[in-house]
Every structure is written in C-alpha cells, then in structure tokens.
Design a binder for these strands. Sequence first.
DNA 1: GATGAATGAGTGTTCATTCAT
DNA 2: TATGAATGAACACTCATTCAT
Lengths: 233, 233, 233, 233
Amino acid sequence: MSPTPPSPSSAAAGTKRERRKEARPGELLEAALDLFVEKGFAATRVDEVAARAGVSKGTLFLYFPSKEELFKAVVRENIAGRFAEWNDELEAFVGTTSEVLRYCYKVWWERIGCTKASGITKLMLSEAQNFPEIVQFYQQEVILPGQALIRRILERGVARSEFRAMNLDYTVYVVLAPMIFLMLWKHSIGACVPDALGMTPEQYIEIQADNILHGLCVRPDAPPSPPSSTGTF
Amino acid sequence: MSPTPPSPSSAAAGTKRERRKEARPGELLEAALDLFVEKGFAATRVDEVAARAGVSKGTLFLYFPSKEELFKAVVRENIAGRFAEWNDELEAFVGTTSEVLRYCYKVWWERIGCTKASGITKLMLSEAQNFPEIVQFYQQEVILPGQALIRRILERGVARSEFRAMNLDYTVYVVLAPMIFLMLWKHSIGACVPDALGMTPEQYIEIQADNILHGLCVRPDAPPSPPSSTGTF
Amino acid sequence: MSPTPPSPSSAAAGTKRERRKEARPGELLEAALDLFVEKGFAATRVDEVAARAGVSKGTLFLYFPSKEELFKAVVRENIAGRFAEWNDELEAFVGTTSEVLRYCYKVWWERIGCTKASGITKLMLSEAQNFPEIVQFYQQEVILPGQALIRRILERGVARSEFRAMNLDYTVYVVLAPMIFLMLWKHSIGACVPDALGMTPEQYIEIQADNILHGLCVRPDAPPSPPSSTGTF
Amino acid sequence: MSPTPPSPSSAAAGTKRERRKEARPGELLEAALDLFVEKGFAATRVDEVAARAGVSKGTLFLYFPSKEELFKAVVRENIAGRFAEWNDELEAFVGTTSEVLRYCYKVWWERIGCTKASGITKLMLSEAQNFPEIVQFYQQEVILPGQALIRRILERGVARSEFRAMNLDYTVYVVLAPMIFLMLWKHSIGACVPDALGMTPEQYIEIQADNILHGLCVRPDAPPSPPSSTGTF
DNA sequence: GATGAATGAGTGTTCATTCAT
DNA sequence: TATGAATGAACACTCATTCAT
C-alpha cells in the first residue's frame, strides 16, 4: 500500500509531481474521512471521495483495493496512537490528580472531541457490525491504551490519597463514558437537533468532571471547579 | 408458516387470513428490528426482512411504502410511550431518592437496556444523519420525556435534601450518559469483542450509579450499594 | 365472457343484485374505457379500473381473464357497428350529395368525434403494434364498413353528376383522413396544448368539408357552407 | 464488439475509446428510436435498447439519466431543425404554387414520411398524455414552424392569384392533415394490416394533393398531375 | 501512474394475477 | 359470486470495480 517509488532522478526534496504522488493516499484518506463521517459508509460514493481528492475514480482503486479497505485505512489512520505522547504529557503533569483528570478531559476535547477525529469514533461504532476486524484493531489501538491511561491517573489519585479506594477496572469507564457519549451525540442527534443537549460540549464535560471528581475525591474540599469557569474547564 | 390452525369452534377473532393481516405489520416490524439492529439500515435487504417475517417481498410493500418508511416505523414502534407507565411507577416509589435512582437504572436495564429495544437507540444514533426527520421524532418522544423523568428524580432528591444543589439541566446528562454509553457499547464493540468492557452490564450500571450518587448525595453515608451485590441490583 | 347466469328464481326483470351482476362487465368496461383513454394501456392500473367500477380487483379478473383481454373487450365494445343504422340514415337522406357529406361529418362528430368513442380510435392506433389481432378486428368492423359508407356517398355524387369522376378507392381517404386526424389531435396534442389547433373542432371539420367539396363538386356553385355558420356546420 | 481496429498510424481523430464515447449517444438514440417506434415507450426495455446499441444497461444510464429522458432525447434528436433548410428550399422554388405544394409533399415524404422519423410523430402522439412537457416542445419546434411553412406557401398562392381567398389559419390544417394521417396509419394499422389503405403512400399523397389543389386553385386548369404519374409525384 | 468509459450483479419497487376465504 | 391479501416475476436504476488507453 502507498508504494513509494524511488524518486528517479532528483535527490532533492522531490518535484511537485512526486510530492503529489506521495500525497495521493493522504488526500484520499482525508476526503474519505470527511465524507464517511458526514454521510456514513454506505451513503458515501467512491466517486465523491475521488472527486473531493481531485483524482479520478480509477486512481482511488490504485491505492485502495476496495471501498472497505479504504474505510479501514481511514479508521486506522485516524484513531491510532497519540497515547504515547499523551502519556508523557500527563506523566509530567504537576498538580493534584483532580487537575490531571480535568486536564485530560480538556486535552481530549481539544485534540479529539472537537475535531473530525471524533467522527471516526462515531463511524466506528456505527459500522462496527459490518467491520469486526476493525473493531479488534480499535480495541487494541485505542481502547486498551485509553483504559491504561485513565487507569494510571486513577492509580495516581489513589496512591496520593486524593481518591478513595475503588475498583479500577470499573471506574475507568466512569471516566471514559462521557467522552464517548459526547462524540456520539455530537455526530448524531446533535447534528440534527442542534440544541438538544441544552448546553455546550465544554459545559457538558465540565459538569461530568465535576460529578466524577465529587464521587472520587476523598475530601471534596476542592471546589469542583472555579464557579464561573465555563471556558476554563 | 406458523400455520395457526383454524379456531375450530369459536366465532370470535376472524378467519386465518384476517388474523394474518392484523399480525403482518407486527411480524414485519419485528423482523426488521432484528435485521436493522444486526446489520444496519443499508446492509439490510428488504427481501431478508420479508423472508424472516415469512412473507414475500411484495407483501412487505403492502404494509410499508418503502424501506425508509419501514425503518421509521420500526423506530416509532419500539421507543415511544413507556414513559407514562414508568413515571407513575417512580412517582409512587417509597424510599430514598438514591433508591429511586438505582431502581430507575434497574428498570431501564431490564425493560430497555437488555432487550432488543436498546438496539433501536444504537440504530437511531448510527443512522441519524440519513434520517433527520426521525431524529426530531426521537427528540420529542424519547429524549425530552426521558430528561423530564430524570429531572424529576433529581428534584425530588434536592427537595428532600438528599442531593446537593446542582444545575439540573446539566446533571440530567450525567445520569443519562451511562445508559446511552452502554447501549452503544453493547451493539458495537461489545458485539465484536465480547469482553472488551471488562465487566457485565449490570456491574457497569452499578458502578456508574455508585459514582453518580457519590457525587450527588449530601451525606454519602448510605453505603453506595451492598458491597457484594453484583447480581442483586 | 359476460356469462349471463339463469336468473334463479324470479321471472321478473331481476332483483337489484342480479341487475348488478349483469351490469358488472359493463361497468368495468366503462371504467376501463375512461382510464385507458385518459392514460393509455400501460399506465392504467387494473386496481384503478376495478375501483372506479366499484368492485375489487379480484372481481375484475372474474370477468376478464387478463388486462389485455379487458383492453380488447373495451375496444371491441366501443368501436363496433353503428354503420348499419348510419347507412340507413344516409340512404334515406334527401338533398344534394354535398349535403349528405356535410351531414355525415356532422353526425360523425356528434356521435363519435366529440364523445369518448373518439378516444378509442386514438387508443387503438397508439397500441396497434402490441395488439395486432385487434387491429384486424378494427379493420373488419370499422374501416371497411366506413370506407363502404363513404364510397356509397361518393358514388351517389358521381351518379348524380354532382361530383367529378374520381378514383373512389383513393378519394375515400380524402374524406376519412380529417376525421382520424381530428380524433388523434384531440387526444394527444390537443389534450396538452389546448389551443394548438387554432380553431374549434367544428370549424376544422367545416373547413375540411368545404375544401373537399370544393375539390369534388363539378360546379362548386353551391356556396361551400353558409358563410357565418360556425355552429351550424 | 464491433472492434474498430486501432487506427494504426494516424494521430488524428483520437483513440478507439474516445471515438466510441462520442458515438455512444447517437448509437443509443438510434437503437431507442427503433425500439420505441416498434413497441412503444412502455413496452420497450432499457436493456433491449442498450443491447441493440451494443452496450450494457449501465452504459445507457451513463448518457441518459432515465428512460424518460432517453425518450425525450429521441424525440428532440429526430424532429428539430429541418425547417430552416426546408424553408430556404421552398423559398427559392421557381414555378407555380401548385408545384411548390406538390414539391413540399414530395420532399416531406422522402425526408420524413418514409423514414424512421415518421415513427417519432406517431410515438409523440401516442405517448402525448404521459409526456406533456414534450408536447410543448413539439408544438414549439415542429408544429409552429410547420404551420408557418405551409402558410407561406398558401400566401404565395393567394398573392399570385393562383389560389382562391381562404382562411389561412384553417387551411393550413387541410394541408397538414394528410401527412399526419399517413404517418399514423403507417405505424399503426399499416403495420398490422399491410394493405388496409388500398394504395401506396405515394399514391395517397398524390390524391390528397390533387384534391386539395382542386379545392384551392382559382382555375384548376392545370391538370392536377400527369395522369399516369404514380411514381413521378 | 492516471484516466474514465464500461460493466453487470444487485437493489428497491411495482403490479398483474392468484386463491383461500 | 366477491373479496383483497399475497405473490413473484419483471423492471428501472445504482455503483463498486475493471481495464484499455
């Protein structure tokens, strides 16, 4: 896939043509991402994907052997591992574990939740039945690392006696569920009935964080979050 | 198929044919529910629906003018109007508001979550973009009544000084999110990677309820739930 | 076809039920005539025919074994012989042969041209390719008698030295063509672009008769028709 | 299929594929013309059209978005724009107006009447009810120009005192009716009962012209047409 | 490598016809 | 006799995929 042919004559960064050639799969994946997220797998026509990427239908099949493979590539491309980077970031975080968790939500929203990447999750969940292999992939690449990341935060809280004792396996999902809920809502009901949620996503996350921390913290002396801090998180 | 023998002596209820006619829409709806939930809207063939209902393709179109209308009918059929009954039940409930909320979760799981009806919600969210009208319907018939129901419980808790003061608009979703999360998980990842959640749905709900109540209750002196009560619920 | 069962018990004109029974085929034929003329053979649904006749679809097939047979019956029923009666009428006519021919046009217009029966001819011609047998029938029942009728008029004119000598075989069609033209126009272009003809059918017939007689009469001293006689004919 | 061998050396005219692409619509239109005329709109299957044009069904839909549009294209393709040329021809004609009219009939028969194009008119009239829009088109593109053309001939005759005074609006149809009659006859009864007309089309036209001119000419001294001139016209 | 014309299996939908009641 | 629910063959149309250029 995406066969990078040896740049024939120039040793330099490559001519415009070559750059295009290398860029093709990426452009197709981006176009496909947009359309799959917007319309779903079945309702997206490969012609549209090709057209949006500025190539012909035939070219698409040069890079991806089928629509299904294109779909899988789109998902793979867009859900994979920011976790390493993320881990380091949180590892290095100085502050209370409550703050870590809030920061974690904030970062998630900024980098995933409010971007097109959130559409991928929606897409994945929607099409899961028809693409079981990709769900396996998602499980390995996203869910398990994600769980581990959250779990480490919770463990930190417990170790530092900030959080009460808890069943970690379970509580991880208490933390994850709001994110998944929000991505789904945004790309389904939220897209049709804009104000159905009754608040902004940021507010939603904040309130969820408040409540979770209220439930987890040993001494919820720390005010859940600065009272008027809508934008802050 | 399923040849209801002619009721030998009673003049009641009509002939075989008539009885069939009345039963047909229901049988088709049930077959369609199964298949739509199992494979999604696009991947479900109307022939399959008809075959599963034991009729020919033509018969299906006798009762539903198109595949889309069939889909809408499936959604309508399976989600409306359990709220009235439910409301009364919770209104009449005697006990702490924590108990009410736990009971609410329990009842939801038994009547919706663990039944095929949970597939409808998954379906709705998955296909929302392609059926905006149905989302409107869902918003009116399911989301708003559901919010109202939860809100009344929260108000009860606050009124009785069991729960802390809170922004009701927001907190409603703290309560709802786990249910939606669970329905989705079950019909997507859960269907492909059975143990991905790491616990049973019942456990998941319990832990969510625990945490939410931990966050809401003024004095979480009441032990969240009997420690070993996995199966109890 | 149209099996008249022995009226079982009453010797009288028949009960309402029986009259209905006998009337059925007629009602169906009438409904079918209307719809076939209005929409063409292919675009007419047998359900519609049955509905307009006030019976169920099944009943239609009790009287006519197929849609095609229904069509043939409609045509047969509506094009057959008024020629005998007509012949006598013209035979008995006293006056110049020009007057006979004008009277002939007038009578044709009143009894065929301006009634639904004209639609039958249009229908016949339109569907001819798909119903060759019926064209044979039409040829026998309508065209040949019609030709004969016109020919007799022309012969009368020649015999009385009112008309010039002519090839009768050919001239018959000089007389017939305007009628056929008018029926077709009325049920095709005329139905879509009401004023496309630029005159009333009556005027059209008059002018055609004028011209034909102008061409046929030995001495067209007879003023073609009373100058302002639009309605008169 | 019909493998046009690759033009071995010439750089002209494009590749095999390209040439096909340009030819396709025409080939399809021709196939459709044949079949529509032969069987009518409803009875013609798009597969047949495609097969006759030597392509697959899908290819047909590459060029025409629907069967209806194909039909409209067939009509449009085959009836427009011979009038300009025709007009000029008749305008330049030197001779008596009787001769002009006869020439007009002759040319009409050679270019329209005896070609497949005559089937279009039959088709149009037959399917008019189902395609009202196309009737409008026909009215604008064919009927009105045709009327104008005939009218100019009649005016010429009157101006040169060859024809008697007449109501032009009406008389135009005296001239047109035989053509329309003939096209219809040929494609309906004529196709089923070959000799029903009793003469050749050429004879039919001649006799009609004779009679019309007999009716129009001031002094029908000019022998209608050379007595034995069947083939001459 | 890139194209886009061509394909044809597959889909939703229709409707004349049947037949149990 | 009359019904109308059920049928299923037939049809228009779609679209992922192929391949000659």
